[in-house]
Design a protein around this nucleic acid. Structure first.
Lengths: 142, 142
DNA sequence: GTTTTTGCAAATGATTTGCATGGAT
DNA sequence: ATCCATGCAAATCATTTGCAAAAAC
C-alpha cells in the first residue's frame, strides 16, 4: 500500500518536526519494499532509478534520520559498508567470514542479563544487536 | 609473566605454520597488558614506544592474524574504527550512541536458539557478538 | 519569506595493497 | 637459501562536511 506507507512516514516526520520530501518518501518506500538489510550504496542505486539525481550524502543523512526515528536500524556486520535494516523487531544476524553475506536469523536471544548489567552502570540501552559469525553453507562446501 | 606470554604466542604461531617476529610478540604483549578492547591506532601507538618504526599495516595484519588464531576478537561497535579485544571469552559490549565509548558487560547471553537456526541453514557459526546501544551514564546526565 | 534539505565537490579517515627490503626458518 | 613478514607510499572506499541553490513550510 504505497499511499499508506507514504502517510505513515509523513506523519512520523511531521510529528518530529521534520519536513516531508520526495527523497525521504522514495527512500522509505525502497527500504520497505526491499524488506531486508542493504548497504547505503545499494539503497541509493535502487532509489536513483525512481528519483534521478539522488545523492549519496542525502541517502546517508536520510537513513540516519530514519534510525533516529526508529524506522530503521543500522547494522555493522563487519564488512566495509554498514547495512540498514527496515526490520525494527529484534532479530539476530549471521555474517559469513568468507563471502561477507549477511542473513537474518529469526530466533529469540535473551539479553536481559546484559541489559541489567548495563543499567546497573547507569546506562540506558535502547537496542540490542546480535551478530553470529562463521562460515555460511556455500562457503563451507568449497 | 612476560616470558610465558611470549612462549604461548610462539607456540601458537609455530603450530599454525607462522613465524615468530618481534612485532608479533610486542603486539601480543600490549594487547594482553591492555586487557581491554582498543583500536588499531591505539594499539599501534602504545606498541611503537617499544618497537619504533612499527607500521600500521603490520598492526592490522597482525591483529587479523591473531583473530584467525583465536587470540583476539575484532569488534565492530559502530564507531569509525574497529576494536580489537584480547578477551576471547563470551561477553557483551555496550556502546554509547552519543560519545561512542565502548564498555564490557559481563553477563551471559543465551544465543543457542539463534545458533540452532543458523546451523539449520547449513552454516557453521563460530562466534557470537552482542552489542547493546544506548546512552551511557555520563551522556544521560548531560 | 524563512528555514530546512538537497546536491555537488572535496575532505576525511580507517583499512588495504603493491612492492622492494629485511628477517626468520 | 628460501620464503614469509615488514615498512613505506600510495590506493581504496565508505562516510562526512561545507556551502550555494532548491524546495518545504
Amino acid at each position: 500500500m504505497r499511499t499508506t506507507t507514504d502517510e505513515r512516514l509523513s506523519a512520523t516526520l511531521r510529528d518530529a518536526g521534520h519536513r516531508v520530501t520526495s527523497q525521504r518518501l522514495v527512500l522509505y518506500r525502497v527500504l520497505e519494499e526491499l524488506g531486508r538489510h542493504a548497504s547505503a550504496e545499494e539503497i541509493a542505486r535502487v532509489s536513483s532509478e525512481r528519483l534521478p539525481g539522488l545523492s549519496l550524502p542525502t541517502v546517508y543523512a536520510t537513513l540516519e534520520l530514519f534510525e533516529s526515528l526508529g524506522l530503521a536500524r543500522r547494522v555493522d556486520a563487519g564488512g566495509p559498508a554498514a547495512l540498514f535494516d527496515p526490520r525494527t523487531d529484534p532479530h539476530a544476524h549471521f555474517a559469513c567470514r568468507r563471502c561477507g553475506t549477511v542473513s537474518d536469523l529469526d530466533a529469540a536471544v535473551d539479553s536481559s542479563a546484559a541489559e541489567r548489567v548495563a543499567r546497573a552502570t547507569g546506562a540506558e540501552p535502547d537496542h540490542v544487536e546480535v551478530l553470529l559469525r562463521g562460515l555460511c553453507a556455500d562457503c563451507r562446501a568449497s
